[in-house]
Simulated assay, not measured.
Amino acid sequence: MTITLITGANKGIGFETARQLRDLGHVVYLGARDADRGEKAAAAIGARFVRLDVTDDASANDALATIGSAEGQLDVLVHNAGILADGPLDGPSALRAFDTNAVGIVRVTEAALPLLRKSSNPTVVTVSSSAGSFWAVNNPDRPEFHLPLALYSASKAAATMLTVQYAKSQPGIKFNAVEPGTTATDMTAAFGIGRPPAESAKVVVHLATLDPDGPTGTFRDENGELAW
């Protein structure tokens, strides 16, 4: 059995990723801050709920301890939890954006590493964004060029860099970051753009189901590796 944890998975891309991996036979742990929403989402797709707030060290440690006690290992970790951070550009907003979108990756990864090392094919996927790509935000032909989301972009650049650095420091584990595509979720509702979450989740699922000799340390979308 493939044991999988997805953070921020009670809705949007995370939920659809959980559903699709569950359909592929994974034992999916659906991580969410809100117990009521998380339990309902997990029940809807036959997943297992684990309370997980990526901004809280104890919560991350407790969630992975729960999985470790039940399963003994973790095969796939999907960092999906994130916020748009489209409010005021100030210190508190910046700290919140980076705490969720970047530091949360460190918290959960560090808690998960002992379990990932017990897997025969450990895989970590970071749902990042080309909004954090220097190449994309400086390219007038890309939609990111016109996206006024400084904190989101900066924190997603950090998320991608963390993923690449983990790939270098943990050669036995595949770490890849993904741009899932512009998606219609709660985060993008104000912009009125994006395709259904199920379509974008397919991109995440592809990276979550790589063979043991699959790529690591990359940033990619559905068409392949991206500059960033």
Rank of each mutant, 00 (worst) to 15 (best):
I193V: 15
A158W: 02
L151Y: 06
G194K: 14
A189H: 11
S153E: 03
V164A: 09
A158N: 00
G192T: 03
P148D: 02
Y166L: 14
K156H: 03
I193R: 10
P197S: 06
F145K: 09
A189N: 08
G172S: 14
P143L: 04
T160Y: 09
K156Y: 04
T160P: 04
L151G: 01
P197H: 06
T185E: 08
L147P: 05
F175R: 07
T160R: 10
I193P: 02
L151H: 03
H146P: 02
I193C: 06
V178I: 14
A157H: 01
M161W: 08
G172Q: 14
P148F: 03
L147A: 08
D141W: 12
G194N: 12
T182Y: 14
A167S: 09
A189V: 13
A159C: 01
V164E: 05
A159Q: 00
A190I: 13
L162G: 05
V178Y: 05
T182A: 12
A157G: 04
P148R: 00
T163N: 09
G172K: 11
T182Q: 14
G194P: 12
P148C: 01
S155L: 00
L147N: 13
E179R: 14
V164Y: 09
E144T: 06
P180N: 10
G194D: 10
A150Y: 05
F175K: 09
S169R: 15
L162N: 12
